[in-house]
Design a binder for these strands. Structure first.
Lengths: 330, 330
DNA sequence: ATGATCTCAGTAAACGGTTACTCCCTCTTT
DNA sequence: AAAGAGGGAGTAACCGTTTACTGAGATCAT
């Protein structure tokens, strides 16, 4: 019994007599044999894994992207590698290099990013380096790159979501909306800010710069910025928080100040994290299809690899989820 | 310039002249060369990845285990594979097989499990199969297996946590505690139930079976079971929820029934998920060191592989976090 | 000057599979 | 009965690295 026979028996792509097959199977069973992926990858082709590169896996929304990626990858017979960068570009560089070595089918980068020149240069490099290695760079939740690069981009409608959220507040009669925006330069910040200002214009409400407080998308920052706004005596009857985490912090600050939500102040978030409905009041927010984002990213990359085509740029829509944190002004 | 020279230059473990090194580096640069892990793994040794096998990545607590695993693995130069089973044993079988093929250094199985005979048989098989492939099975959040198997177990103190939680309620004067326990047979359920009953005994309070409502650890189930308890007219002044998700559901049901928490009913959860502090009232709960669980799992498995030793069984402690959801009875 | 030593590059044998190619044996077909 | 067909097994090349071994030239000691 030669190795070739064993290989063919296990692959099942070549005629093998029933008796031989049985003997092979018995041996496999007895020896607890499993093929060596590395050896297999060296000769016959092996489906490369999908890599997910993310700032931090524990974020309630990012975890859903991860789940989407994992599911779609698993459905297509791929393994998922997940790596956290903790926002360290050097680590990101290392990971991209690693993924080339690993022959990953797709490298999915998730999360907003500051769109400066350095960033664009890095991404361009990643895209071409990965492409040369037969891998595909996928950007999720970030705008496309300028120029003609081998990249797949899966975005969601930040601008539209922010517009809807703001419109909802303005329609309820709120004229002074505290906008807890994101870090300046961050793509999601900018886009949500755009949507916010667009809605103001559409309603003929002036944009008040002093009501636009930028900061990181964290609970703590939401809390601090709201406290600060209150302390500064800013006049507002509603808050549009850049994310649900920020909204959560704002909620805590408002409550501490003895203000009722939505009685005294209305609030809208962004993301629709799982516990948004469990806050009190249940948070009105913009749903982002996080899981879909992950699935789509993998689907597009793999379809392209399998030459079925596959788009290079998709924008998923967001949707306002109305709960109890907004009340109309009399 | 032979391949050997290139290999040695890149490895840096053999004398290479400065001039040759420069030529090699230039070529590497120009061709965007990266080593092929598969080929490397076939000859020289390569550090195997760590595999995380989990029911579902999106759970707020499980995501932290994943983060812990990823971090510890990354710190030790390993890649992390994450796979969801969605509670399908067949999928789990496949994954263990896959991980043997992948030469994973460790396979970490996370989450409580129903400890029946079939389960024990499966785990015993996984343990020996992985061990034979040079891989280590690590069970996280589950009790050890009977017999002498090659397994590493990282548990946390469910019993002690449940004891503390219950003790806290009883000390506050609550005599009738609705216990929203977990699915019967599930290891975490059983252990938390043990701790609960132990605390009752310690306080000389009778265990009332009708106040022990088992069910899945989901928000929906917590909501339904609480509603049902209320509808049945059960007398209780406090709720001990098996998990924070269950507590969240219970909170919603109590609020709907017009009951104030903690004014009318006190409540304690289990897990200390990130948003527990943001519920109103902020949830008193038992903190489980999820991230540590993940880190420890990887650490033990890899230390053992590197022959530094490494324990085979560790129990991490839990801790009651007192917030605002419990009030003492007058 | 000559052998010993050292430095550094090349050769070739693994590593564990897959697969094109070869070849033998049996079963048909005429 | 001889030739052809086809099933089923073995042989060997190849995938991309690493590394023990070989050996050529330079340097050094005697």
């Amino acid at each position: 019994m030669s190795v070739a026979t064993v290989s063919r028996t296990l692959a099942g792509n070549y005629p093998v007599s029933t008796e031989t097959r049985a003997r092979v199977m018995a041996a496999v069973e007895a020896l607890h044999y499993v093929v060596n992926v590395h050896a297999k990858a060296l000769s016959g082709r092996v489906a490369g894994p999908v890599a997910l590169v993310i700032k931090d896996i524990t974020g309630p929304s990012l975890a859903h992207v991860a789940a989407g990626v994992e599911q779609e990858a698993a459905d297509r017979g791929r393994l998922s590698l997940v790596c956290a960068t903790h926002d360290d570009p050097a680590r990101e560089d290392d990971l991209v290099q690693l993924m080339r070595e690993q022959h990953a089918a797709a490298v999915v980068l998730v999360g907003g990013a500051v769109q400066d020149e350095a960033y664009r240069r890095r991404m361009a490099e990643y895209a071409t380096a990965l492409d040369a290695a037969g891998s595909r760079l996928v950007l999720v939740g970030r705008p496309p790159l300028p120029g003609d690069l081998p990249v797949t981009v899966v975005e969601y409608d930040n601008r539209g979501g922010a517009f809807q959220a703001t419109d909802h507040l303005l329609t309820a009669g709120h004229q002074h909306v505290l906008f807890l925006s994101g870090a300046p330069g961050l793509s999601t910040s900018e886009q949500r800010g755009d949507g916010f200002r667009h809605a103001l214009r559409a309603h003929g409400v002036a944009y008040q710069e002093e009501l636009d407080l930028p900061g990181p998308y964290t609970r703590l920052s939401g809390y601090q910025r709201t406290k600060q706004a209150l302390a500064a005596g800013l006049a507002f009857t509603a808050v549009f928080a850049g994310t649900d985490m920020v909204a959560t912090g704002a909620l805590a600050a408002l409550r501490e100040a003895g203000l009722d939500v939505p009685g005294d102040v209305s609030i809208v978030g962004f993301d629709d994290v799982p516990f948004a409905a469990d806050l009190s009041p249940a948070l009105t927010t913009v749903r982002v299809p996080y899981e879909d984002l992950g699935r789509t990213a993998v689907r597009l990359a793999l379809e392209r690899e399998e030459r079925i085509g596959g788009d290079d740029h998709v924008v998923l829509s967001t949707q306002l989820v109305i709960r109890q944190s907004v009340r109309a002004l009399p």
